[in-house]
Design a protein around this nucleic acid. Structure first.
Lengths: 198, 198
DNA sequence: CAGATTAATCAACACCCTGTTGATTATCTT
DNA sequence: AAGATAATCAACAGGGTGTTGATTAATCTG
């Protein structure tokens, strides 16, 4: 479908996006201007508008590309071994790939998930995670639960996001495997029990 | 110490802050300009600069005032009945007051914690919550834990924040008591067990 | 209440960033 | 090598910023 033949556009677009990510991390999203990006990327400002409408268009395209990558991982491993995996007790086999993927795109992810980033992206990511969780807990809405299911999901999903954010803040010291295990344990046994405090 | 005698400054400052909160909710923080605020608040733009340096100064002062209120509640009930309360098994007595306080300031809180708000405020609030939790789990750093304590805290604190955000997104349908119970249960028993899914 | 004080208004200023245009140059594709 | 297309450059009006000095209006104090 999409053929990005010309190497020139590819070069400038990646230069723009990389610079953008760095600047968000440095100055914070709202303080980054188009002029900033083009200056630091050593590109004419007019060229920017050949590819993006404005700063927010650039942000959205960057975010959506990243999310597409995550969805790809999710689908890839959803279809394969859903039957083998006994659900909930051990980390989902996709989890490690997921953390690895985030690490690959660490500059941008760190920037937008950080305190000077984009809260809208946090939301998009949470929605994606929520969708994945709901797929595994279909019985959830039918039973009478002591706690509303939407709050359960909000709890787990936000906790998940927080762990990811903490991972990035700390400089990605833990391996993707460790992260997947940690998260799975806290979700299943509860944070206090998993931490040995109960 | 601080005497805010003149009624004029009080009026304009509250007009500015109220308008600011509404505009953040409507347009998103980065799209709100000083001109926006003063226009909607029916105030001369020059007057704005008599009280705040710029948009970010206004944001910070608004946030810090709110956080001070939360700290006040925390301290108030920390000192009083720490000995009576058996810790961790039932909601902290301050929790309900805390949720009530957030509800009182719902316009601003909803705005800054929403997807078009300020991720920096999320951080500030998380740090405050983390401090409170650490006070109750002093033994935490000494033991050998199966999961690093900072990740435990990141998990619980982010889950907490997510529940609050979900409460606001849903229009504050649940009462502060319900919220306090819900949160306490999910933290202690783990989200899955508390939800009846284990 | 009257006078002094201080806040709010208003107009004007230079400055910076935006988004667009038309013409020119450089680069890539075939 | 020729044609196509991307990048550059200069210029533009428009809009927001932060500051200034002068004027008007509201509040506080005695």
């Amino acid at each position: 479908m999409e053929m990005k033949k010309d190497r020139r556009v590819l070069r400038t677009k990646t230069k723009i996006r990389d610079t953008f990510a760095k600047l968000i991390d440095q100055k914070g999203l709202d303080r980054v201007t188009v002029k900033d990006v083009t200056d630091h990327a050593d590109i004419n400002r007019g060229t920017f508008y050949l590819h993006y409408q404005d700063k927010y268009d650039l942000l959205e395209q960057s975010e959506d590309d990243l999310l597409e990558g995550i969805k790809r991982i999710a689908k890839e491993l959803d279809t394969v071994n859903m039957k083998k995996w006994d659900s909930r007790r051990e980390p989902h086999p996709a989890a490690e790939k997921y953390f690895s993927y985030l690490k690959e795109h660490s500059v941008f992810v760190k920037a937008v998930l950080g305190p000077k980033g984009d809260p809208g992206f946090q939301n998009k990511l949470k929605n994606l995670i929520a969708t994945q969780i709901k797929m595994r807990l279909t019985d959830l809405s039918k039973e009478k639960l002591p706690i509303p299911s939407d709050y359960l999901i909000a709890y787990v999903v936000s906790a998940h996001l927080g762990v990811v954010q903490h991972w990035f803040e700390g400089g990605l010291k833990e391996s993707p495997e460790e992260m997947a295990d940690m998260l799975s344990n806290m979700n299943f046994y509860g944070p206090l029990a998993a931490g040995g405090l109960k």
